[in-house]
């Protein structure tokens, strides 16, 4: 409760939360706001923003840009959250095993992690999507597969720090199984920095998804921000609104998530939290 209150008093964190809430509401209400399919050609092509029924204009096939942004929010948020969850599953598991057992297990896990870290994440994601095919699930898997190394390293560091703590040793002496010790004693005490990094990973995942769609490697059946920008890049001189509005949507969403993540960091990290309270 205390932490919630501190977060609510965090100015930039709150700004981020409000923007993010707006994007989430937009995504949820998309079918109500725009009953037509975003792929539907509802108007004449190349209509500038402010034309009748088209607050953000139409694209070169006469599709509603505003509807595209609303439906794109669903895709971006879904992929951002789902791929981060996937990355958390992989990263936390590998980091926890490495940090808890140490020694050779740790060496093995960290070499695998480093292998992934040395390959540029975006290129690996392109490779994966191109190989296994551009569907929503595959995009999520691909982004998750390139986003987990930082989470694994962070989890490992936290587990190593807590592993030697006396309350963890006391639990071992009580005869609790390693899995129980890790889940009940270490993870709850390590969760704060993982949440913070996880929230920032969502932002990165959204960017990777947009970039993939921009290159035409997104799910072709889903309207997404990256796809809209990618499709309209050739006409940017004549019809700026087709790429600028999805771009602003990406910017605002990623910025909002970063602000929330920073706010969470300040609230969940006790040392900085104290500074906020004194100020």
């Amino acid at each position: 409760m205390e932490r919630l209150k501190t977060f609510l008093r965090h100015p930039t964190g709150m700004i981020g939360l409000i923007i993010l809430a707006a994007v989430v509401i937009l995504a949820i209400c998309a079918p109500a706001l725009f009953p037509d399919d975003p792929w539907e050609m509802v108007a004449a092509p190349f209509q500038p923003p402010g034309s009748e029924d088209l607050p953000l204009g139409s694209d070169m096939l006469g599709r509603n840009v505003a509807a595209g942004i609303a439906y794109g929010a669903r895709v971006s948020l879904t992929i951002g959250v789902a791929s981060t969850l996937a990355a958390l599953c992989i990263g936390v598991t590998i980091g926890a095993i490495a940090g808890y057992f140490g020694g050779k297990v740790d060496d093995l896990m960290m070499r695998i992690t480093e292998l992934f870290q040395t390959i540029p994440g975006f290129i690996l994601a392109i490779l994966l999507v191109a190989t296994i095919g551009p569907t929503l699930t595959n995009v999520i898997i691909s982004i998750g597969a390139v986003s987990w190394p930082p989470l694994a390293r962070l989890t490992r560091a936290e587990f190593m720090r807590l592993r030697g703590r006396e309350f963890v040793q006391a639990a071992v002496c009580q005869g609790q199984a390693p899995l129980m010790v890790a889940l009940r004693h270490i993870l709850p005490n390590a969760i704060s920095p993982i949440i913070v990094t996880g929230s920032l990973t969502i932002a990165t995942a959204i960017l990777i998804e947009s970039a993939l769609s921009f290159m035409g490697l997104g799910d072709p059946n889903l309207m997404s921000w990256g796809l809209m920008i990618g499709a309209s890049r050739t006409v940017i001189r004549q019809a700026w609104w087709m790429s600028v509005f999805p771009g602003v949507a990406i910017l605002l969403t990623v910025l909002a998530i970063n602000l929330v993540g920073e706010g969470l960091n300040d609230t969940l990290n006790p040392r900085i939290a104290r500074k906020v309270r004194n100020a």
């Binding site: 703590r165 006396e166 309350f167 963890v168 040793q169 006391a170 639990a171 002496c173 009580q174 005869g175 009940r184 004693h185 709850p188 005490n189």
Partner: peptide, 20 residues
Amino acid sequence: MRRKVQIVFQDPFAALDPRQ
């Protein structure tokens, strides 16, 4: 066998899980 040997640590602040 573990349950037959138990330990009390030095620092009572570090020896209890703050979230339990």
